[in-house]
Simulated assay, not measured.
Amino acid sequence: MRDFYSGSSLTIAASDAVDGYTGCFPASFDDNGGLDPPGIFFTTSNIRDGGGSIVRFQSADIRRLTEDVVLNTRGWVLQEMVLSNRIVHCMKSGLYWQCRCAFQTETGLKLDRSAVNENSLAILPHDAQIRTETSKIWWNWMENYTRRHFTYPIDRLPALTGITRHYQVATKDVPILGLWESTFSQDLLWRRDTMIPPDEFEPIPNPIRNAPSWTWLSFPHQISFKYLDRDSDGEIQHHIELLDWAVNWDSEPLTSGINSTRLILNGPVRQCVLSDIRKRTVFDTPFFDLGGEEDQAPKSAGDFDGEVRSIPTKYLYQTS
């Protein structure tokens, strides 16, 4: 897949198609001549020469339009968007050109690709050795990836193979189940990005067998990454060291099941007693009780993925 899409001259995307049978220009697009509702068009005239113009209002930023389409809700499509050098989006509102430098509409409106909204897919630079920047790009991709859907959940790992290889070749880094060897301590800082109402938690079985808890691949929901704060010199201070790791696959890496994993870290840790502070309503912010009486103990926003655990349990956490 990586070679196929990164080597293509042009990728044609049926961006508004709801399924594989709809095509680039389905019949349902003909309601308004294949364009947005007529209300956003108007004509002007020039009384001097009798000429005129047709003015069209774009209903939204085209860079956002091409990302909020049906096609971009699918998990496999992320690699197509990331790896393709040029894409033509076939949409109800028109044709849109996308490459690594610009977006452009069929009417000639051109926008710089670099100025995008926070939900846009980042572009891996030619100089991919700057780890702080490439890490953010990987996090951006994975946050986007976990918002997408799969017809077959078991595809969640294989659909990541092309992007992983692309990033690996560019950065010369080593992949570790959705994390990377050189930035492992930062990549560990992922968290659940969805709210689960109390008493309504329904566990979703993880299709990735034996996925260890330290990788976001063990969590079949939307996630986000926390950006580390820098010190006065602009450097990130790390307090853990990756000593050893191993991932043993049933067959080919990333395309087969996980047989076993090993991870050894070195760093200062502290023991704490952790339990839930029960929530009263759906809208209450969930908190952890950090080792004391509920009204007196330090509190930290957070929640377990499973049922409420009112019985305090001892955990180790990393400290500086």
Rank of each mutant, 00 (worst) to 15 (best):
T146N: 04
T146P: 00
R147A: 13
R147L: 15
R147V: 05
R148I: 05
H149L: 10
F150Y: 15
T151C: 11
P153T: 14
P153K: 14
I154H: 14
I154N: 11
D155Q: 11
D155A: 04
D155F: 07
D155M: 09
R156N: 11
R156Q: 15
R156P: 00
L157G: 06
L157C: 11
L157Q: 11
A159E: 07
A159N: 13
A159D: 12
A159L: 07
A159Y: 06
T161S: 09
T164I: 15
T164W: 06
T164H: 06
T164R: 10
H166F: 15
Y167K: 00
Y167E: 01
Q168E: 12
T171D: 04
D173V: 05
P175H: 09
I176A: 08
I176L: 14
I176G: 01
L179E: 01
L179C: 02
L179D: 06
L179I: 02
E181N: 07
E181A: 06
E181V: 01
S185A: 15
S185E: 15
D187T: 00
L188K: 05
L188G: 04
L188F: 10
L189N: 10
L189A: 11
W190G: 01
R191G: 02
R191V: 01
R191N: 03
R192F: 02
D193E: 13
T194L: 11
T194R: 08
M195F: 14
M195Y: 13
D199G: 00
D199A: 12
E200S: 11
F201Y: 15
P203N: 12
I204G: 03
P207M: 07
I208S: 04
I208D: 02
R209F: 04
N210D: 06
N210C: 06
A211V: 03
S213L: 15
W214A: 05
T215H: 07
T215Y: 07
W216Y: 15
W216N: 05
W216P: 04
S218M: 09
F219D: 03
I223L: 12
F225T: 02
F225L: 02
K226C: 14
K226V: 15
Y227E: 14
Y227A: 12
Y227L: 12
L228F: 13
D229R: 07
D229A: 09
S232F: 14
D233G: 03
G234L: 09
E235Q: 12
E235S: 09
E235T: 08
I236F: 07
I236W: 01
H238Y: 14
H239S: 12
H239E: 05
H239R: 09
I240G: 05
L242M: 09
L242T: 01
L242Y: 09
L243D: 01
L243G: 01
W245K: 03
W245A: 05
A246N: 13
A246T: 00
V247M: 01
V247A: 02
V247T: 02
V247N: 04
D250I: 08
S251V: 03
E252C: 02
P253W: 08
L254C: 04
T255I: 00
T255M: 10
G257Q: 07
N259H: 13
S260T: 14
T261A: 12
T261L: 13
T261N: 12
T261K: 09
R262P: 00
R262W: 12
L263E: 11
L263A: 10
L265H: 04
L265V: 08
L265S: 04
N266W: 10
N266G: 03
G267R: 08
